[in-house]
Write a protein that binds this DNA or RNA. Structure first.
Lengths: 339, 339
DNA sequence: TTCCGGCAGAAAAACGTTTTCCCAAGTGAG
DNA sequence: CTCACTTGGGAAAACGTTTTTCTGCCGGAA
């Protein structure tokens, strides 16, 4: 039982088949498809009809071999695909998919050997570009040995200012939080956040202090409480803050987990949130923010927008219009019941 | 200022360059590289040395064009890249990366149009295979129109039993939980889980009931408590259970969020966990399980192992050794302080 | 010496496009 | 009626491999 001559099982149609059916040469068929060259409209129609009839789809390997473009970009993530890189990744995939570009996923697990390995692989595949995303906002050293391949760093900027980076605007985040608290009448604000050696913690803390100074205020406890990005730390820190400054009327927390820890301690201490004390988190991690009692007011970092912009800037760079430097994406305030 | 003849900037070396440097023909150089054909060891060495010197790397597009293999598999995820698909995806990427195969990421966002679009794209790229992963364990209809491309369904099995599926073994999960509770002396066990229309909830509940019957026991409240996969539901359900059956001595929950909700209610009711009541969750979602007070004993579904196995079975299928059917991956009990 | 077999390596075909170059026929002007 | 141009379309080169086929050459046996 052999397949009928024009059955799909007879193997993918190639351009030569299309040409034969349309009664033209391969070259002409190609031109008809791509709109190049000049020919009678009627001829073009014949080719297009043949394409339709045979369900022809060009072989991308042949195309890529000839043009040198693979219509593929590599997406390197250095920390598994965590809570942070995932939205970035999806944003990028979305923006690229619209342009017929596919995403090759590479996870380095934070391992330099693996990173180098993936890099070779991407270069062997002649990817058109690379997006690098990391776990946190701390700057990272640029990829080495990718001379001619356009690259964009998302979330974690490159340490080289001549590279293209797209990052979250921590200043706008701190600003939204502080201004929101001030606008709702809070003046004795405590700041509890992650490890001091994380850029995210450090930057947000600095901005917070400066913004308060701008309004002639200072932190309720006189200092920033650095710790971990965990609920447990939030709980401990809340106790400490209340001991040092019982009149605190707001907590601005470095992330939603800390905020939730704070909320738990306050609730269990019988302190009304938001009646007596307001809480603002950071990240808008829905699972955390919504499960919190009460649901958290928080700062959304627009991660998928960061991914989208990284993709668009990569497209620009591939098109030879790179805009080097560090580009920021503003945050968004999400008001819920904790403030 | 032109680049030195053998500088990397002089453009990628091609096999012809290698051949010229080694003083052989391209064909011979190719054979030397791939270990095919016969030749004097010395000749092979000369070629290899040239490869080294020029840092030659074969053009994958040319290879693929000729061999018809792309050394690429598509990974279709139907629900963004959520908490469930991510580990599966990483497991698969890991297993495939070892075999020099790269992963093309496609997110359908649950949209059929988008799914079809990605499918065309994958076929145009002549991927060697496809892995499909979904949000939950509910079966899904098979991909349409991929006749000749090997496909494996991970996490969400295909409704067609002749397809290859790799899923989590809900029976083993329920078994580990129930046997652990029985072994630690609990006999009045309540089961709180997600929506009744989710296969995961339904299956685990059924197995739980059957396992208890096996030990001549029944559920503390006489029935399964279906609801949502949320902490809020866990909190409400715990109250209900305690009202109906105050002598309940253990909660087996359908996921870690529910378990955490239960834990919160119990703690706030002054009931000692695990002294008076034990709690077992499901999923081993570290963020939830560890932040819970006390840290949760829970069932780990080995998601990354599911991804790994899906990849291996896909490799088999690509190698023309498919093993159709539904393959299960057993769960693992993680004991912490809640039991 | 002649033949045959085996071996090293060269030459060429093939994979499926795109693009450049070229030719033939038609059109208009002088 | 020719000449120069334009226009439609064909032929062929190119992309960089792999694989198959082919050609000398050498050694050994008759």
């Amino acid at each position: 039982m052999t397949a009928a001559p024009d059955s799909p099982a007879a193997g993918r149609a190639k351009l030569a088949d299309v040409a034969k059916l349309a009664g033209v040469s391969v070259g002409t068929a190609s031109k008809a498809l791509n709109g190049n060259g000049r020919m009678r409209p009627e001829t073009r129609q014949r080719v297009l009809a043949a394409v339709e009839q045979l369900d022809f789809r060009p072989n991308q390997h042949a195309q890529s071999l000839h043009t040198g473009r693979s219509w593929t970009v590599g997406l390197m993530t250095t920390d598994g695909i965590g809570r942070f890189s995932t939205p970035v990744l999806l944003g990028a995939e979305d923006a690229l998919g619209a342009g017929k570009i596919s995403v090759l996923l590479c996870d380095t697990r934070g391992d330099a050997i693996r990173e180098q390995h993936h890099l070779r692989n991407l270069m062997d595949r002649r990817v058109d570009g690379i997006i690098v995303t990391g776990r946190r906002t701390d700057p990272r050293p640029p990829l080495k040995g990718i001379e001619p391949i356009p690259t964009v760093y998302a979330l974690s900027p490159s340490t080289d200012p001549d590279d293209i980076s797209v990052v979250s605007d921590d200043l706008s985040g701190a600003q939204l939080a502080v201004e929101h608290l001030l606008a709702t009448g809070r003046t004795r604000i405590a700041h509890v956040t992650g490890p001091a050696h994380h850029a995210a913690a450090q930057d947000r803390a600095r901005h917070t202090v400066e913004l308060l100074e701008h309004s002639s205020l200072e932190l309720a406890t006189g200092r920033v409480h650095f710790g971990e990005w965990s609920e447990a730390w939030g709980r401990r820190a809340a106790e400490a803050v209340l001991r040092i400054a019982p009149d605190t009327d707001a907590f601005f927390c470095g992330n939603d987990q800390i905020a939730r820890g704070v909320a738990d301690t306050l609730r269990e201490s019988g302190l009304d949130v938001p009646g007596k004390i307001a809480i603002v988190g950071y990240d808008n991690w829905d699972i955390m923010a919504l499960a919190c009692r009460p649901p958290l007011t928080t700062i959304d970092t627009n991660l998928s927008e960061i991914g989208r912009q990284a993709a668009l800037r990569l497209l620009d760079a591939i098109g030879a219009q790179p805009e080097p430097g560090r580009h920021t994406v503003p945050c968004r305030l999400v008001v819920r019941e904790s403030s």
